[in-house]
């Protein structure tokens, strides 16, 4: 059983804003999803001590040589707010109203 408080805690960590209804619904859905995840305890496989990573022959890393950076206009192009060359986020906003 996943409680409403648990959902609130997780949502806060995951930075998801949930209404009371959404929280209640998620608590319900997550209970069955977590029960599904709990099936991991049915495994009869020996639990490996080590962790295997698929990385084959990668032992050489990148040389410390500068490559020209992206154009600042590209970097800012998809942003919702800029000020000069900065990304800008207004402290607070109300839909439909303009601040500052």
């Amino acid at each position: 059983m996943v409680s409403v408080d648990e959902i609130k805690r997780i949502a806060a960590l995951a930075k998801l804003h949930l209404t009371e209804e959404e929280t209640a619904l998620l608590a319900e859905q997550m209970s069955s999803i977590v029960a599904f995840a709990d099936e991991i305890n049915n495994s009869k496989l020996p639990v490996s001590e080590e962790v295997l990573i698929n990385e084959y022959d990668r032992t050489e890393f990148r040389e410390d040589e500068v490559v020209p950076s992206s154009d600042v206009s590209d970097i800012l192009n998809n942003s919702g707010g800029t000020q000069g060359n900065f990304f800008m986020v207004k402290d607070k906003a109300k839909a439909g109203r303009r601040y500052g």
Binding site: D64, E65, V66, V67, V72, I75, N85, F86
Partner: peptide, 21 residues
Amino acid sequence: KTKIFCSCTTQFGGEPNTHCC
């Protein structure tokens, strides 16, 4: 000379967001 996970310069200063990728 470059950042830890990309080849952008680590040079101090510079106009904002001009040493990025």
